[in-house]
Design a protein around this nucleic acid. Structure first.
Length: 466
DNA sequence: TGAAATGTTGGGGCG
DNA sequence: ACGCCCCAACATTTC
């Protein structure tokens, strides 16, 4: 009787899961395993919000498996070694898992495949959490794409309406092997709940609601409304199926706004594609002429950015939102990234790392792509002279000031007119609003106009020197 | 998926 | 009536 280990990673769901579907099809007994890699799990830098979301997802997965008479085996340790053990203990014939394309994951999986080959266990991998495999999209000459609009054209040619893979079948009798308890953390109610059950509800609501998918193009930049889908952490951990999302969005026939949202999924594909084909981008600038930009990298300045103490309200509100909830509005991500790189002259990789550690949806490929876009070092990035003005961005995308007031209650009584530039407030109004710059709220740590000029000089010089 | 600088136009005030 | 200036509004160019 055939036993197959389903090594669950970033596919923590039963619905429309190609790997699970294949295991149930091929085996009389399927053993779901999740491995906590101490390299990630024990890292002190891993934000509680991320931990919490993953714990939710594992608990939900286990609960669903129990309804099917199975359970989730949780192990902690080096993946290759733990899988060897599981295979030995269960006498499994094969291990199935989906491909993950980050450099770290590819190395890890190569070790796993080598270790299992020695044991004589069959390994099969599947492409599950992207719509297209990285090899599937290429120019006519076989080269990978580096420009989004061309990538999208080819993507639309090659990727139709995705299939659905059922999880029909029997898991068989759960093996009597050791499992760690499900990891638990103290829940913070400000952090989004994880898990397939929540993800499915969120997806359904977003596609159906009038202010969801149908309004996306018009509302997505409104910081206070926060009308984006919030599905990114679910996409990262695979607690929703990206194929299911495409089917649902297409079925909703939401016109142009729906297409704008589907485009965001294509960006996700594009950034994975780029990282896969250009691994050097994981470590530094995709555009090599910007590999050695002389960043100032002042540690105290960076700390102020992290804590949301820059003195620019829209920037500070965004960082506080991140620190308190593990989430940041996408428009705000662009604003703070522009500010870190072009106003504070700090290496985008510092910000990239901070995001990856603290965002619940922190995803190597999308995060790297986004930061390189903002820093103008990436594929199809914004040109270096596009520099966001944090005051104007605040006024445009948080016109009512509700976003800033929500995350910076100390500015609650500042009139909207001055909210995004409190240093311009006349003394008597500041007194009435209870603001003493430098005390109740920081004075701006840099002058935007000045820093903009410095950034322009820096990039221009670097570009000419190659 | 910018912003600032610079250029152009046209209406109104004024001598 | 006319030229001149000012400047807001809009357009274009530049970074």
């Amino acid at each position: 009787m055939r036993r197959i280990v389903w090594w669950a990673r970033r596919d923590l769901r039963l619905t429309d899961n190609l790997t699970l579907h294949s295991a149930l099809r091929d085996a009389a007994s399927v053993i779901p395993v999740f491995i906590l890699d101490p390299k990630l799990w024990q890292s002190r830098k891993l934000a509680p919000a991320r931990r919490q979301f993953l714990c939710d997802a594992l608990a939900d997965l286990d609960a669903q498996l129990r309804e099917r008479g199975a359970r989730l085996i949780v192990r902690e340790g080096e993946p290759a070694r733990e899988l060897e053990r599981v295979v030995n203990e269960t006498q499994a014939d094969a291990v199935y898992f989906h491909r993950d394309f980050t450099p770290f994951a590819r190395q890890r999986d190569a070790r796993v495949i080598a270790a299992l080959a020695k044991l004589g266990a069959r390994v099969e991998t599947f492409d599950d959490n992207y719509l297209a495999a990285p090899e599937q999209i290429a120019k006519d000459d076989g080269a990978p794409y580096v420009v989004f609009t061309r990538f999208r054209l080819r993507f639309e040619e090659r990727v139709g309406l995705p299939m659905r893979f059922s999880a029909r079948g029997d898991f068989g009798v759960p093996p009597e092997i050791a499992s760690n308890d499900l990891p638990r953390v103290t829940r913070d109610p400000r952090v989004a709940r994880g898990g397939e059950t929540v993800g499915a509800k969120l997806a359904r609501a977003f596609v159906r609601r009038d202010d969801g998918l149908r309004a996306y193009a018009a509302t997505r930049n409104d910081l206070a409304r926060d009308a984006t889908s919030h599905l990114s952490p679910h996409l990262h951990f695979g607690t929703v199926s990206v194929r299911e999302l495409v089917r649902a969005a297409r079925a909703a026939d939401a016109g142009q706004p729906g297409k704008a949202w589907l485009d965001e999924l294509v960006w996700r594909e594009f950034y994975m594609h780029v990282l896969y084909h250009f691994p050097h981008a994981a470590r530094g600038a995709f555009k090599r002429e910007y590999a050695a930009l002389p960043w100032e990298n002042d540690r105290a300045t960076f700390a102020a950015w992290c804590e949301g103490l820059t003195g620019y309200p829209v920037v500070d509100a965004a960082l506080r939102q991140l620190n308190e909830t593990g989430w940041m509005h996408n428009r705000a991500r662009m604003i703070v990234a522009s500010f870190l790189t072009k106003d504070l002259l700090i290496d985008w990789r510092w910000g990239e790392k901070y995001f990856l550690q603290n965002l619940v949806d922190g995803d190597v490929a999308a995060n790297n792509g986004g930061w390189q876009w903002a820093a103008s070092t990436g594929t199809d990035a914004q040109p270096f002279f596009r520099i966001f003005n944090p005051v104007l961005q605040g006024a445009r995308f948080d016109a009512s000031g509700a976003y800033v007031r929500r995350w910076l209650p100390e500015l609650g009584r500042v009139p909207t007119k001055y909210l995004h530039a409190p240093w311009t407030m006349p003394a008597d109004i500041a007194r009435q609003a209870g603001i003493t710059l430098g005390k109740t709220y920081p004075a701006p740590m840099v002058e935007h106009a000045l820093q903009r000029e410095r950034a322009l000089r820096l990039y221009r010089k670097q570009k000419s020197e190659g």
